[in-house]
Computed example of a mutant assay.
Amino acid sequence: MSLCGGACAVCYAVGAFFLLSLAVRVLKAVYAAYLRPAEDPKKYGAWAVVTGATDGIGLEYAKQLAAKGMNIVLISRTASKLADVKKEILAADKRDIEVKVIVEDMSGEPTEVYPRIAKQLEGLDIGVLVNNVGISYEHPEFFAALDQERIDALVRLNIVSINQMTRIVLPGMQQRKRGAIVNVSSGSGTLPTALLTAYSATKAYVDFFSRGLAVEVEKDGVFVQPHHATKCTIVQATGVRLQAYE
């Protein structure tokens, strides 16, 4: 075999290996997204806890988990909206499930908010935790123009809430050797996003926190996954709904 022929054969082999690897990754992604059978979340425990549960992604998680037969703990800051969601879930689901509501503003002082939440979750067989509560900017803005209140809220709702809720729920999951934690991140957290700088950074934290924690607790039978939302409905104070891509 000539030198050229041998080199060409090596190139063909490397190219074939690369294409095969790419095809395997694509097939795995398609299987995971569209073909893999859905798991029964009740295998993790009887209760699911959802923060930011009265609208958008959190509301849909609560409704879908209830439809799977799980008891639901709804956490949000507005009592009237929590009551409406509880009524909606119980009316839609004919199975014998329970819905518990916890009224808390998670942008408040952490040393006060989370002990109250922990007390109300005592004794529950929590199998699923959905850390959904979060906040973004009212509109794209330079970081230097943000007020301190907005910056504090971004950190408390997007980072502190996930840390604290996970600390409350995770020990029980580890003890029972089962559980699932879903942390709602954002497409904006996968790369730096100018004019959403602080928000993007907090969502990058959610992603890295989730992936690191997943490795730590895999041995305990606890599954951790970041959910990278790329489109959601924003409800403004005026009641106007806007479709937002992140």
Rank of each mutant, 00 (worst) to 15 (best):
P110C: 06
T111L: 06
E112T: 11
V113S: 00
V113W: 05
V113E: 06
V113P: 06
P115D: 09
R116S: 10
A118S: 03
Q120Y: 12
L121G: 03
G123M: 05
D125L: 00
D125I: 03
D125S: 06
D125W: 03
I126R: 01
G127L: 00
V128L: 09
L129Q: 13
N131I: 09
N131F: 07
N131D: 11
N132H: 08
V133H: 10
G134F: 02
I135C: 10
E138K: 13
E141W: 07
F142N: 09
A144W: 15
Q148P: 15
R150A: 07
I151P: 09
A153H: 06
L154W: 11
V155G: 07
R156I: 12
L157T: 13
N158E: 08
N158P: 05
I168H: 01
I168C: 02
P171M: 02
G172L: 04
G172S: 13
G172E: 00
M173P: 00
Q175D: 08
R178T: 00
N183L: 11
S185P: 14
S185A: 11
T190V: 09
L191P: 10
P192A: 06
P192V: 10
T193R: 08
A194W: 14
L196Y: 05
A201H: 02
T202A: 06
T202W: 01
Y205A: 04
Y205P: 01
F208Y: 15
F208L: 14
S210V: 01
G212N: 01
A214C: 01
